[in-house]
Amino acid sequence: MTVLKILKYPHPILRIPCPEVLVFDEVLQGLVADMVETMYHGTGAVGLAAPQVGQSVRVFVMDTNAYTTRDNLKIMVNPKIISASRNKTMREGCLSFPDYLANVKRSKRITVEAFDALGVLHSYELKHLEAVCVQHEIDHLDGVLMMDRIESLKTDWLRRQNTQEEAVDSQD
């Protein structure tokens, strides 16, 4: 497994909507393994989408326990949100936008269907941080970035200051 380089804005691949995965082969499984390795490799992130490592395919990995127990890994290929609840504003950070935080409205609960790396379809009912993570990563697969989701420049677009601010769930 390899730790991949994380691309930052304004790399053009971050703006390209990703096509669906059609073949579930060892190339895909290798990419997924490398993405998991990269996510766990001290990034401080709980999710990583394929375009962030230069691959324009609808794949992301996530583990909301990525920097504690690492026991909640989910691999999502061709994810589709089937249903979503009402919104809650969350403060998010992004590996491809390390200098900023953004307050973004996200659904608190979602049902998402996605394939794993072997092509088996799964359905997940997720809430709170996991639900937000899925929506953030699916945005990456659509070429959408945090700045495209804010509603007010004054209140929702925040530059990280000298002290490293953590992205936290907040502001119901």
């Binding site: 390390p98 200098d99 420049l153």
Partner: peptide, 20 residues
């Protein structure tokens, strides 16, 4: 309203400009 900052980008300094 304007927020404009220079930040570290992929291959150099990136200018982020947001205008309301």
């Amino acid at each position: 309203d304007v927020h404009a900052h220079r930040i570290n980008g992929e291959d150099g300094i990136v200018y982020m400009l947001a205008i309301e």
